[in-house]
């Protein structure tokens, strides 16, 4: 018999796998609301993925196995990431000290394969996107790690489950300024890693200006479906890091916890939609500045925590 906690953990995991694409629907709806449009249906991402899964593929003759492996490894990485990140208060299925480093490394593995797959096509556009992607992520990685350092220091915990298990109202009262700064840093990393405005415009159709979307120009059919679903899961994971800090809930009871958490995720998506509606894309030259700023915010949070 499966113990109750495992059942609940599986339930939360299922929620992640099912609900992740919904975030994109909420973002698009928010944007549409701002622009006074009706917008695509909330479930558009599901329709897209389902349709792609039913299609054949068109592949460049330049490509090799690296190209075909790219989307597959990418999706496996973020799916494994879902096993590492705790949702709604319960410990994650795989939890050990230092698991957040593995999470960061899984994102790096995903990037390694996505970028290699992009270069495999020999297209200059995809090379351009790949080159930008590695630059931005190289700066986002220290920001993420220093943010984890702040959380670890404050909670005296070395695994994500323990960390988020201890973020409580009391912690918020003790070190609110630090937490706000870390949240800001994480939000910047969230936007950068998920290729959202102000870092990247997922809706543009000009190859020269894109970062993430341009890397997957040559993928089609199920491959593109994997990529879309992978990016949804990635957004869910990184979003969960933020929501877990903002809503310090544990074990009020199971269903309200899950409900609150999902509401939090949807609100985060609304926030992304608002940012995208009121901001323009940054000039590419200024993107590193914002990311260096994120590292700065995280370091500042740590300094305040040590000082206080």
């Amino acid at each position: 018999m499966i113990p109750v906690t495992t059942q609940m953990a599986l339930l939360r995991l299922a929620a992640a796998f099912v609900l992740a694409p919904l975030l994109f629907g909420v973002i698009n709806r928010t944007q549409a609301l701002f622009a006074g449009r009706k917008g695509p249906p909330l479930l558009q991402m599901y329709f897209d993925i389902a349709k792609l899964m039913r299609k054949g593929t068109v592949i460049s003759r330049t490509t090799t196995w690296v190209f075909r492996l790219g989307p597959i490894v990418g999706l496996s990485c973020v799916a494994t990431g879902c096993l590492l990140v705790p949702f709604a208060g319960l410990p994650a299925p795989i939890s050990f000290p230092g698991d957040f480093v593995v999470l960061v490394a899984l994102l790096a593995l995903m990037r390694f394969f996505t970028v290699s797959a992009a270069l495999d096509t020999g297209s200059s556009f995809e090379g351009m996107g790949a080159s930008r992607e590695v630059q931005f992520s190289a700066l986002a990685e220290p920001a993420l790690l220093v943010s984890f350092a702040v959380l670890a220091r404050q909670t005296s915990a070395l695994s994500l489950s323990e960390m988020f298990g201890q973020v409580s109202v009391i912690f918020w009262q003790q070190a609110a300024p630090s937490f706000i700064l870390v949240l800001a840093a994480l939000f910047i990393v969230f936007l950068a890693e998920n290729a959202r405005i102000p870092f990247d415009d997922p809706n543009t159709h000009l190859e020269l200006t894109m970062v993430h979307e341009v890397m997957v120009l040559d993928h089609g059919g199920p491959d593109l479906g994997f990529i879309l679903y992978g990016s949804a899961l990635k957004m869910w994971i990184l979003g969960a890091l933020i929501v877990n800090i903002v809503i310090p809930i544990h074990e009020i009871s199971v269903w309200p916890d899950i409900f609150l958490f999902i509401v939090g995720m949807l609100l985060l998506a609304v926030a992304v939609g608002v940012v995208e509606s009121v901001m323009a894309r940054l000039r590419l030259l200024h993107v590193p500045q914002l990311l260096v700023g994120a590292v700065g915010l995280a370091i500042l949070a740590l300094m305040l925590m040590l000082g206080a």
């Binding site: 300024p177 500045q289 700023g293 915010l297």
Partner: peptide
């Protein structure tokens, strides 16, 4: 720890950093 005051002070620090980073 005086929460509102510390938050104000952190804002001051952030503004200092922003002053160093701003281009316009």
């Amino acid at each position: 720890m005086a929460f509102p005051m510390d938050s104000l002070l952190v804002c001051v620090v952030l503004i200092d950093l922003a002053l160093l980073a701003v281009n316009r």
